[in-house]
């Protein structure tokens, strides 16, 4: 059964990657990232059973902690950006390119 779980995990991970790439809403991108983290968790738990070692489950637990922290900070950033730009389209957030006029609106 192990291989099937792992394949499911890989498929989930790739779906998450696709979500990150095609979506423009940072909320959905975050969800896709959560999806990828869960895929990794599934793989960890699967390996834990296959090897008879609870270390995998402990690892999955730590991943959950990290995911929670990441979501808190990431969503706070999204709210902040929304407050200043009135938009959360990720294609509008091109300040880093440094090109003149790249920013969709002023951050001030």
């Amino acid at each position: 059964m192990t291989s099937e779980y792992l394949i499911l995990s890989a498929v989930l991970f790739c779906i998450g990657v696709g979500g990150v790439l095609i979506r423009r809403n940072p909320l959905v991108i975050f969800m896709s990232i959560e999806l990828m983290l869960n895929a990794a968790n599934l793989a960890l738990v699967t390996f834990a059973r296959a090897r008879g070692d609870l270390g995998g489950q402990a690892g999955a637990f730590f991943v959950m902690v990290c995911a929670a922290a990441e979501v808190v900070v990431g969503l706070a950033i999204i709210v902040t950006v929304f407050r200043s730009k009135r938009s959360i389209d990720i294609d509008d957030m091109t300040l880093l390119s440094g090109a003149p006029g790249a920013e969709g609106g002023s951050l001030a």
């Binding site: 059964m1 192990t2 291989s3 792992l6 394949i7 995990s9 890989a10 793989a43 390996f47 834990a48 059973r49 296959a50 090897r51 008879g52 070692d53 609870l54």
Partner: peptide
């Protein structure tokens, strides 16, 4: 990953 785990599953009963 398809062939990543070989041999019997150990299981977590212990």
């Amino acid at each position: 990953v398809a062939g990543a785990v070989n041999g019997p599953e150990v299981g977590l009963e212990e």
